[in-house]
Design a protein around this nucleic acid. Sequence first.
DNA 1: TTAATTTCTGTTACCGATAACACCTGAAAT
DNA 2: ATTTCAGGTGTTATCGGTAACAGAAATTAA
Lengths: 350, 350
Amino acid sequence: MIFVIMKEIMFSTMLQATRKLERGTHLVTLNDVAKKANVSKMTVSRVINHPEQVTDELKKLVYEAMQDLNYRPNAAAKALANNRTQIIKLLILEEMDTTEPYYMFLLTGIANELDKSAYSLQLLTHKNIQIGDSDGYIVCGMRKQDEELVKSLKKPTVIYGKNDIGYDYVDSNNESSMERATEYAIRDGYEKIVYIGIDVDEPFALSREKGYAKVMEKYGREKCLYRLENRSRYSARFIRDNWADFPKNTLFLCASDRLGMGVIREIKEKGYDIPNDYGVIGHDGVFLDQIAYPHLTTLKQSTAEMGAACARMVLKKVKENGKPQGSELFETELKLGGTTRNQVKQSSLS
Amino acid sequence: MIFVIMKEIMFSTMLQATRKLERGTHLVTLNDVAKKANVSKMTVSRVINHPEQVTDELKKLVYEAMQDLNYRPNAAAKALANNRTQIIKLLILEEMDTTEPYYMFLLTGIANELDKSAYSLQLLTHKNIQIGDSDGYIVCGMRKQDEELVKSLKKPTVIYGKNDIGYDYVDSNNESSMERATEYAIRDGYEKIVYIGIDVDEPFALSREKGYAKVMEKYGREKCLYRLENRSRYSARFIRDNWADFPKNTLFLCASDRLGMGVIREIKEKGYDIPNDYGVIGHDGVFLDQIAYPHLTTLKQSTAEMGAACARMVLKKVKENGKPQGSELFETELKLGGTTRNQVKQSSLS
DNA sequence: TTAATTTCTGTTACCGATAACACCTGAAAT
DNA sequence: ATTTCAGGTGTTATCGGTAACAGAAATTAA
């Protein structure tokens, strides 16, 4: 602030109050850099956007000038000239109050990455879908019924979550995640491994089931797979209603921490010990696992990193005029809590 | 969208491919509206920004033209001309993984409101404070140690949360919130009301305590007030360690749902009944109250509305060149769960 | 040595909006 | 009837960048 004020005083003292100064205070422009480096502003612009077209010598001069003046490009001007908006819209199609709070981490990851490219974010929820101008979209929580909407988007789009409609996406490697968990459960000495999945016909749910099924077959264990709505009271009720089917030394492998919490609650209610009598493993590892008591053993997603990856992917796609980017899968981390016995050497895991 | 395609076809058919069309596709500009309405673009601009300077007759023409063409102002151009950025930065100074997920709701509220004014959001966290260009700031989770940082901001700033440093803010009415809860607890027949607060020296914590204290005095009850770090394991341990002090028919009034969860857990652990033997009331009502079993009776904050209010306040402040806006307090809603007896007629509450 | 390229840099026009100014009307004042 | 003035509208320059083109210098080819 002091600097700004000083600058203003200096100028008005010099009676040089140009229109530019009256209007605004953006300090350093391309022009300033250009003057300092004794080149045209086009050259400076090239150094930034097409450095290969500029001599090393000039590039050096320009870089130094930019450093000295602490040049920061004006996103609005850039946007206007490129016919871009410098905005990426994030569509959240899920009800947020029924969902776990990992969105916040996802958002943080996205936002930090966008910032680096002077992009900003607009958040749209199912309640507020004003598909205005933007350079691209990131879509989360997409279900089958949202496909039409997503297909109607006219700009580069990346989906957070595997999908069947050929869109570029970023996701956790749900299959390998559950493989690892199942393997761990078996090695941790649990006899029966019951899978409690989420009752939606979506790729993420199917992948998780597949991971479980694969390892159970590999070990010749009997599969035991259920599907519930993703709410702790349903998993609690499920345990209560089917208690006879679950002998001691059973582990419940849950497709979400939320389901895991219901399971824990009900086992404690029955007076059994976790992890000795029964084990529980959840999935997501964002928040609920820490709220649970004992802390849930869970598969922790790298939510913020995945957000960053989404952002990088859309931006790249924007730059390359919508060119397909494929997909990116992130491994989860098995985070041990107090709901498993944890007698396995971590190093012995694949 | 059909409209878009048609328009493109029309133009190319007419072999009128101007440079504008080659470069981009922003459809309708001020100029287009101006032509359609037979006025200059300056008039259109005035209709938008200074309608009082334009005849009703022309205004009508212009509005119609805008409607017909579905005109959407170009935020980048506007930003550039006004020497603005059309960006508001949100600073989250708290660790998000120790905090409840209400930020997501806050964010939604902010984002929706900003959208309406073609503003977008940039999210900054304590890990990533790149205070670049923006027109204003919204700050959340500010603690004493952050005051310097906040004071160094050079643009209109609104704080989410009451503060002592004279900044405009939006917050829940924490005092009246706890007054209501205390009153309710008493009327619901609990003999002893224990307050479990959060151990930070911040206005929100103090206001909540004050609300409790006030009503306890009013009813001539003995105050019993503790402060803990905001984690469920601490409140659980606290209950365990001081169990002797809590006869049956005690209600624990907690400054957060998180603390409330620890209390519930420990009471259940001891084998007592909630809500008959003991009562629990939490605060926040964003997410954890629904995870708790039984559901927590809590004071639900209007988080999204407060977010919207923050956004409106910064935008107003930006428009009015930083003019102070005062503060805005939102009442919480007493949301009854299974942790209180709920024998009180709601209507009898103040 | 001169013509033909290639490589690099500068000039111009433009993106879509706005403030300042110029101008033009008609009503009020003299 | 002429001057003043106010309100209402159009013109111009500008915000800070970038693409397209033009032009100069350095290479290469002949």
